[in-house]
């Protein structure tokens, strides 16, 4: 197995060290503006103030899919170009994506209680997000069980690609299954054009969440690079000690 080429990650670390504070600052500013716009947004005539949950639920749903997208691109980088940073990018995206998927599920369920009268409905969209969450958990389980980072990153890359092929199929089948077992009463939102007074805060919040994703992702990548460095150095130290004894 090739040693991770540390030259590139070192340059990457320098860039991250410089960019990260600015990115975090911009994220905070956009969040502040987004939340201000959310406070000013009018209530929905059907759902009342519960529409406020949408401003976090929808961006989280978007990020749950983008997270897997990032992992898929990173998987291609790992398998095709064998780029060491791609491994790191894929691994760092998994917990962040899983966390946003979790947020999407919880807020969806809290939105469902007042709107649908129950915390959970086997609605097509919620269910496919749930399956996506399970896929994320499988990915995290894969990383947890493997000790060798090189080995686990290849396996994770294959799983990310298999998942990327499967997610549309799962979404299609869950929607098909859902229309087969049509739930009694679901208040369908959307369909009609969204009013700009709601749309703009939503877009700002989506931007803020996306920036947050990349901030966390970059920071997690930096941690992962450092972790691999520590691992390499510890192994070399152990080797050195073993060499001194014999």
């Amino acid at each position: 197995m090739a040693v991770i080429d540390l030259a590139n990650p070192t340059r990457f670390l320098n860039v991250v060290d410089r960019v990260l504070p600015w990115l975090a600052g911009v994220t905070a500013l956009v969040f502040a503006y987004g939340l201000y716009r959310v406070l000013g947004a009018p209530d929905d005539y059907q759902q009342g103030a519960t529409v406020k949950i949408m401003f976090i639920h929808v961006p989280a749903a978007w990020l749950s899919m983008m997270g897997w997208g990032v992992m898929t691109v990173a998987a291609l980088g790992t398998l095709v170009w064998r780029h060491p940073l791609a491994d790191v990018a894929g691994k760092a995206a998994a917990p962040v994506g899983a966390a946003f998927t979790f947020i999407c599920l919880i807020t969806g369920s809290l939105w469902g209680r007042p709107t649908w009268g129950t915390y959970w409905v086997w609605d097509a969209r919620l269910t496919s997000v749930l399956v996506l969450f399970l896929l994320y958990l499988g990915m995290l389980a894969l990383y947890w069980t493997a000790e060798d980072p090189g080995r686990s990153s290849r396996a994770a890359a294959i799983l990310a690609l298999v998942g990327a092929v499967n997610i549309p199929i799962i979404k299609f089948s869950v929607e098909w299954w859902n229309t087969l077992h049509q739930p009694a009463s679901i208040l369908r939102t959307g369909g009609s054009a969204i009013d700009p007074s709601i749309l703009w805060p939503l877009l700002v919040m989506a931007l803020a969440f996306t920036l947050l994703f990349f901030t966390l992702h970059l920071a997690a990548m930096r941690n992962e690079i450092l972790r691999r460095r520590v691992r390499t150095m510890q192994m070399m130290q152990a080797q050195h000690l073993a060499g001194a004894e014999t």
């Binding site: 103030a49 519960t50 406020k52 639920h57 947020i103 809290l110 939105w111 209680r113």
Partner: peptide, 14 residues
């Protein structure tokens, strides 16, 4: 509105 708890809970969880 009447469902303030759920909205606050959603934001708190996030």
């Amino acid at each position: 509105g009447p469902h303030a708890d759920f909205i606050v809970a959603a934001y708190a969880v996030t």
